[in-house]
Nucleic acid binder design. Structure first.
Length: 597
RNA sequence: GGUCCUGUAGAGCAGUCGGUUAGCUCGUCACCCUGUCAAGGUGAAGGUCGCGGGUUCAAGUCCCGUCAGGACCGCCA
């Protein structure tokens, strides 16, 4: 090793020792006759003192025109420091620093490599555009916050491995070059040189392979799997992302949830120092939607949605003559200016709603505002009690189709929580959302699977889901933390007849099913075990654990929102020769018959 | 595919009603400085105001287009 000690580990007990350190120049404080600088390595920082008269700074190569001696260090030079650890002079200790009791008096500072002036400050500045940060990611990773996030990610992966091994899971990889499936998200496609015109797809998830592993008798499988989806970005979405993928045989829902809970409990205990109360509460999808307007409710604050459909059943107000009327209360919102209330209308419109009707509860309990003018005296007088509003509050309404209205109110609820400072950012709120619907109607009037078509119905729906697809509930579950969907899964279908019934409902013919999933259906002919599993979004999970605001902050080399990578410049055009070799422009024979002339 | 926000020196930002030489902080460079830890002092360099077009006597500022970044809707089983 080039060094004898790590900078961040030095303490008073090391005083008098001669040490060799290596790292980066973090901050300099040059006083002419004496210079201090903080030497940073992976373990932390320690102050180095360099005297002007010791000619201690020199370049390793001895060339390059930089004069020997003098304090010619700049930020982020990579240096090797030889010197003696000593207690700092009385009064000069820095209690802010773990190493603040000591300093290293340099005998020699060797510049291992120089750094050009930085594109952004590595020390200090935090408000740096992400584009620049990602372009110079190697510098961004030197920053304390990013380095910490990545180390948390690493630690979490080790903990995951421990937990899963302890629970008897086998850790296996599944293919990255696989078969395109028309279901679900758009695939990333890979041309195949050996078979021009044919393409691999990168997996959206290892779903089908892990089910095959269950047929194969592995019984318990997990993997930290990279997944790929060619869809548009969000701050918590990347085109490639990582998930903890797991699957178990001979289990019911409770068994899978117990593994998920053990995993979360371990990660939060060891990394966040938080003891997750187990078992986690469970809430049905229907309850989550009606109370919180979301299938991933943030339970760190109240402000629940009131269902006013019955209250306004006989209303004369035409807007409220709808299949569903609901409301959510903004505490103290009654004092908002007209401009602020108008801004809510724009907010609602930006979400595709017509607007957000509101009423204001006066100090004397009177009801005013647009809705107040349009409802009857009786409706006005009971309103505050019906929505549990207090004087000075603002009540927002949504009326129309139940699902869309609840989602609007749910979004308004989150906005209220944020604007009114109701969310305790130090709190953790975990829950399972269970009993999702199996199907939803498509625009064409058919049905599509909400989770995926291999999801089993709840046991009580096993015999009747085909007759009543609109009401059928799936044995599917999501784990939610602080309003973020951390993961989800389901008990799978393992019987052919039931699988075919699901395909029938979603309009997938036997031939189509055979052509798309034939390998799975074939496998299910050979004694498939009952099985189920789940997947956690690893990036999102780490984001929450690290307290980061974007999954990009917990990914070493993320992509920008355009899908491009500012660091490497990918994606790039390829040469004509590459196109030819990859067979990109080849056309399948049946699509375009070979020309004869 | 759609909506919105942003784009000014290496970084972060200001720039009024369209009007003189586009400012501030940090960083960089030079010099001074022996106890700082966001060191301090003096001075200097550094700008195609994203790009293109338009309106105007005059555009960083107004209009149109375009590109890039970000947020959201659609999408993401």
């Amino acid at each position: 090793m080039i060094r004898t000690h790590e900078a961040g580990t030095l303490r008073g007990a090391h005083a008098g020792e001669r040490v060799v350190l290596a790292g980066w120049v973090a901050r300099r404080r040059d006083h002419g006759g004496v210079m201090f600088f903080d030497l940073r390595d992976a373990s932390g920082v320690v102050q180095v003192v360099s005297r002007g008269d010791d000619e201690s700074v020199h370049s390793a190569g001895g060339t390059g025109g930089r004069p020997p001696g003098g304090h010619s260090l700049r930020a982020e030079f990579c240096v090797k420091v030889t010197g003696e650890v000593r207690q700092r002079p009385a009064g000069n200790e820095n209690p802010e620093l773990p190493t603040g009791a000591v300093e290293v008096v340099a005998e020699a500072v060797e510049v291992l490599s120089e750094a050009e002036p930085l594109p952004f400050p590595v020390e200090g500045g935090t408000d740096i555009s992400e584009e620049v940060r990602i372009k110079y990611r190697y510098l961004d990773i030197r920053r304390e916050e990013m380095a910490r996030n990545l180390r948390i990610r690493s630690e979490a992966a080790y903990l995951l491995s421990d937990v899963m091994r302890e629970a008897g899971f086998v850790n296996l990889e599944t293919p990255y070059l696989t078969r395109s499936t028309p279901e679900g998200a758009r695939d990333f496609l890979v041309p195949v040189r050996l078979k021009p015109g044919s393409w691999y797809a990168l997996p959206q998830s290892p779903q089908l392979f892990k089910q095959l592993l269950m047929v194969g008798g592995m019984e318990r499988y997990y993997q930290l799997a990279r997944c790929f989806r060619d869809e548009d970005f969000r701050k918590d979405r990347q085109p490639e992302f990582t998930q903890i993928d797991l699957e178990m045989s001979f289990v019911s829902r409770d068994d899978v949830l117990a593994v998920g809970e053990a995993l979360v409990a371990t990660l939060w205990r060891e990394i966040a120092g938080y003891e997750v109360p187990l078992p986690l509460p469970r809430m049905t999808y229907a309850e989550a939607m009606s109370r919180f307007g979301s299938d991933k409710p943030d339970l760190r604050f109240g402000v629940e949605i009131s269902d006013l459909t019955a209250y306004f059943a006989n209303t004369g107000f035409r807007v409220f003559q709808a299949p569903y009327v609901g409301a959510v209360v903004m505490p103290g919102g009654g004092s908002q200016t007209r401009r602020e209330l108008d801004a809510w209308q724009d907010w609602a419109k930006s979400r595709g709603a017509r607007g957000l009707a509101y009423a204001l509860i006066g100090a004397d309990g009177s009801v005013s505002g647009p809705v107040g003018k349009n409802i009857s005296d009786a409706e006005r007088s009971g309103l505050a009690a019906a929505v549990n509003a207090s004087p000075g509050d603002c009540v927002f309404f949504a009326a129309g189709a139940a699902h869309a209205s609840q989602e609007l109110l749910g979004a308004a609820r989150l906005e209220i929580g944020a604007r009114c400072g109701l969310i305790d950012s130090t709190a953790w709120s975990f829950l399972w959302v269970v009993d999702f619907p199996m199907f939803e109607e498509t625009d064409e009037g058919g049905w599509t699977a909400i989770h995926h078509p291999f999801t089993s119905p709840l046991p009580e729906w096993a015999d009747k889901f085909a007759a009543e697809p609109g009401g059928a509930l799936a044995d599917a579950y999501d784990i939610v933390c602080n309003g973020t969907e951390l993961g989800g899964g389901s008990i799978r279908i393992h019987r052919q007849a039931m699988q075919q019934a699901v395909f029938d409902i979603i309009g997938l013919s036997a031939e189509e099913a055979q052509s798309q999933f034939g390998f799975l259906l074939d496998a299910f002919k050979y004694g498939p075990p009952p099985h189920g599993g789940m997947a956690f979004g690893w990036d999102r999970l780490i984001m929450l654990l690290a307290g980061a605001e974007s999954i990009r902050d917990v990914i070493a080399f993320p992509k920008a929102a355009s899908g491009a990578d500012p660091l490497t410049g990918a994606p790039t055009p390829i040469t004509a020769a590459q196109r030819k070799e990859a067979g990109i422009d080849a056309r399948p024979a049946q699509a375009t018959p070979p020309k004869t002339g």
